[in-house]
Design a protein around this nucleic acid. Structure first.
Length: 279
DNA sequence: CGTACACCCTGGCCGC
DNA sequence: TGCGGCCAGGGTGTAC
């Protein structure tokens, strides 16, 4: 499901909803997520205040004022939903919930859901090596000011893999997934099968500017909803209305090339591209 | 070290 | 209605 823009939408919304609130109750319906939930999660954060919620790559980080943080990852099917005042009974894939009370006695809680359980949600001490280990192999964030196109180029140009798989490799650039990789390569007119070592600096400059453009637009649109992605208020995203190749097999290419968009399996995952425009 | 592939798990959809 | 097969936004561990 979620790539950088979807996780950004979730963490921004969650930050707005729970920043400065104090945890009043923790529900754990299921401990066996991709990473097993620590047994002490309830005791560690009970009655503790949330400092803020951030994103790093496709991870969400909820910081508490006692030097602990929750890190969560939505995997393919994860989501977070907010409920106010009236709480529905937990459903099958509602794994964890945190409940807060606002000044005016309004109850608020959020639920971490994940049918496929490729995601996780766990508590870490900020000094614990396992906290830093989660982030240690992540490459740079594409949307930060200091992003170095030169370094990006150097890391790509020494590799023999396809540019598609290099862009999905989170240690080269972090936060991209299948949708935004396909879209960026199309806009840059670069074949997903081109090898990293065959691309020029000019290619990479173009590619980076398209990645930036696609991600920013997707964040503005609240992410991409293909089947089940929703923000924390249950609203869908709208970037699917702007997809040019992803999930568009046999559609006409939007350029004047009269070709049809092709789907091909590459490294076990669907690649969508225009065989004429992307060289 | 780089690359390719199987695997984790559930649900939805399609064809028979 | 039911079954098998295939598909899905991701990440990790293993074998070469």
């Amino acid at each position: 499901m979620p790539e950088l823009p979807e996780v950004e939408t979730v963490t921004t919304g969650l930050n707005f909803a729970i920043k400065n609130l104090i945890v009043k109750k923790v529900y754990v319906q299921r401990y066996d997520l991709r990473i097993t939930v620590s047994k002490n999660i309830k005791s560690v954060i009970n009655n503790v205040k949330v400092i803020g919620v951030q994103r790093r790559a496709k991870y969400g980080i909820i910081q508490f004022d006692n030097n602990y943080s929750i890190i969560f990852h939505l995997g393919m099917s994860g989501s977070i939903v907010i409920e106010r005042n009236k709480f529905k009974p937990f459903q099958k894939h509602d794994h964890i919930a945190l409940e807060f009370k606002k000044n005016n006695n309004i109850k608020i809680r959020f639920i971490f859901k994940d049918p496929r359980r490729f995601g996780f949600f766990n508590i870490y001490n900020n000094e614990d090596p396992s906290f830093k280990n989660i982030f240690k192999n992540l490459g740079p964030e594409p949307l930060i000011k200091g992003f170095s196109i030169r370094l990006f180029y150097e890391n790509i140009s020494k590799r023999q893999s396809s540019i598609k798989s290099l862009l999905l490799n989170q240690s080269i650039i972090s936060g991209l997934g299948n949708i935004y990789v396909c879209e960026s390569l199309f806009l840059a007119k670069i074949s997903p099968f081109a090898l990293g070592c065959d691309l020029s600096l000019k290619n990479i400059e173009t590619l980076y500017s398209k990645i930036e453009k696609v991600l920013k637009k997707a964040i503005r649109e609240g992410g991409t909803t293909l089947q089940d992605y929703k923000n924390i208020s249950g609203e869908i995203g709208y970037f699917q209305n702007y997809l040019l190749v992803y999930d568009k097999e046999n559609n006409k290419c939007i350029n004047d090339c009269s070709a049809l968009i092709k789907r091909e399996v590459q490294n076990g995952r669907s690649t969508y591209y225009c065989p004429t425009c992307q060289k």
